[in-house]
Structure formats: C-alpha cells, structure tokens
Computed example of a mutant assay.
Amino acid sequence: MIAVIPVKWSSRLPGKHMLPLRGRPIVEIVYRKVSDLMDCVVLSKYEVSVPYEKDRSENILDLVSRLMEEYSDGFMLIGGDMPFFLREDIATILRAGQGTGASPTTPVGPEPMFTLYRPCALKVRRLSDYIVGCRYRQVSASSLSPLALFNVNTPEDYLRARAISSERPDLIL
C-alpha cells in the first residue's frame, strides 16, 4: 500500500503546506509520520521541503481518478495540511479497508483527504461520491484521535494549529 500526500494551491491560505509548526513545515510533519509507516509520494503543485513529484492534475478529483488507474491495490490519500493525526489513525483506516476502501465519517460526511481508496469505475463530481458510491467502509471519526482530521485551511486554522503544537508537541514528533 502506498500513501499519497497531495499539495495543492490554496486561495484561502497560500503556501499553507510550508507554514512552520515548531520550526518544521506542515508538509514535512505529515511526510515524516507517513513515511515511517509506509511508502509514500508527495504530489505537489509547487516546491516543498520534502521529496516530491510534480502534480500535473487539474484538480483533486482528477488526481484521485488517475491514482485509481495507477495503483490497482489502492492508495491512502492523506492531506498535506493535516499535521495532527497519529500513526494509529492510519492503521485504523488500513485495517478497516482490507479488501475495500475505508473513510472516516464525521457528522457532515466522509473525510476524503484521509481515505483509503480502492479502484472504482464510477464517474463522479466529488471525492465523497467515490466513498459512498463504491461502498467504502465508514470509520467513525470518533474512533480516531481527537485531532486526526484537523486541517489547516485558513489563517485562523493556522493560529489554532500553532497553539495546539505548542500545547501538544508530541503530536508533531
């Protein structure tokens, strides 16, 4: 199994993946956690501080569709802006997705950026449509660590992430 960490442009918080928490870029924190557990590739639209390949996809849906063709055994997509998950959270998703895909589910729906995808021939308009249409196993977000699905999308999120990383340095290694 391989993990894919996408690094896309952000209009709400440009360069968010390279913003530091305790002196390290967010994408580096994510990469280190994942690469300790499994093979991973960072697909980035711009230069980042970890080994990466240039992302040539038009959008995240295009990227996932192409990855489904490339990785016949499936892949785990992990947001490059999600610094606080634990290694056990990845293990929980991988266990749930044996033989199928698996996604954490929150009260607002599935979290497509922390999902184990398996090839599925659906034509969809949103990533969550793969999760529902392909009948991936749903993993309650409550079975993951409390901050596993926290992502940095806005300046306010970044300020909160800085506070969390100061209070809980163990969450970022």
Rank of each mutant, 00 (worst) to 15 (best):
Q138H: 15
L67G: 04
I93T: 04
F85T: 01
V48I: 13
F84M: 03
V152Y: 02
F75L: 05
S44I: 06
V48P: 06
A161V: 03
G97H: 03
A148C: 09
Y130R: 02
M68R: 03
E70A: 11
V41E: 13
L77Q: 03
Y52L: 05
S165E: 09
G109I: 09
P107Q: 14
E156S: 11
S57Q: 07
C40G: 07
G99N: 13
S165P: 12
V108I: 13
G109F: 10
Y136V: 00
A161G: 07
I60S: 15
A91T: 13
I164R: 05
S166E: 08
S44L: 13
V64D: 01
S145G: 00
V50I: 11
D157G: 12
D39E: 14
N153Y: 07
T100L: 09
D89C: 11
A121Y: 03
A102M: 11
L77T: 04
S128I: 01
S72F: 10
L43K: 06
V64G: 04
E58P: 04
D62G: 15
A102P: 11
Y136N: 05
I131E: 04
E88D: 13
M82L: 12
P119Y: 01
M38A: 01
R56D: 14
V41Q: 08
M68S: 02
R135K: 14
S103A: 13
N153P: 00
L144F: 04
V132I: 15
Y136T: 02
E58L: 12
G99D: 11
A91P: 02
L86P: 01
I164V: 12
R168G: 04
S142P: 01
E70K: 13
P155R: 03
S44A: 15
V48H: 06
